[in-house]
Design a protein around this nucleic acid. Structure first.
Lengths: 109, 109
DNA sequence: GCGCTATTTCCATGGATATCGAAACAGCTA
DNA sequence: TAGCTGTTTCGATATCCATGGAAATAGCGC
């Protein structure tokens, strides 16, 4: 997990509609949901939804698989897990001794 | 932690410069760093840095305290902890049974 | 191939963000 | 008060982002 990937994923879910969308897919479970179903539940125009979905897919947080004419959207759990792990490990250590314990030596300075 | 706060915080760190900035403050520990020191380390113009810092302070991820003429910036650990907790709990449960545990009845089917 | 449903791309528009120089402001010291 | 250092606000510009209607594409069944 590099910092660039992290920021892109963070920005992807840093939007009300997209976070709701992602939550919906997470709760739908491994079976996922077709785009049309998501559209019906969130009440969004197709083009807008497609735009947001693309963003999530693009950053690896969501996967899409064809199933007939429908496109099934599924939350990619490991991706979010990796992001949470990154935040907790790299950024969220609640003590400065993390520098000597888990954090790599400061490269920037 | 409501979804609106979550998205705002996510968007705040969903930016390369701001995530680097936040990491820097986390690694600096509870003692924090003055703005000038951060500016020197990241090599940013003061106005740009101030803009980003304001964003982080505004969302509660960073705190600022006067110390003479310097302004000490400190990472607010509980804020990030809350965000990580929210992501892990609300969004990152790898099973649909989260619906029966915490989810509202949006289970239209 | 034709028609049907599901989904995306195209295009335009309005709004938010990022950037940074210049000037203003805050607090200390003499 | 004058002057110094540290930090923010002002102002302007370029860029990215969000939104959604209309047209195009993808796959299925006949």
């Amino acid at each position: 997990m590099d910092i660039e990937t992290a920021t892109r994923q963070l920005r992807a879910i840093g939007h009300d509609t997209r976070l709701q969308l992602y939550r919906l897919l997470v709760r739908a479970g491994p079976g996922g949901l077709p785009v049309g179903e998501v559209q019906a539940r969130l009440g969004l125009p197709g083009s807008t939804l497609s735009h947001h979905l693309r963003r999530l897919v693009d950053t690896g947080l969501v996967r899409q698989d064809r199933h007939g004419t429908s496109l099934i959207c599924t939350a990619v759990y490991p991706a979010m897990q990796g992001l949470v792990d990154y935040l907790a490990g790299e950024c969220c250590a609640d003590a400065p001794d993390a520098e000597t314990a888990t954090a790599p030596p400061e490269r920037a300075g």
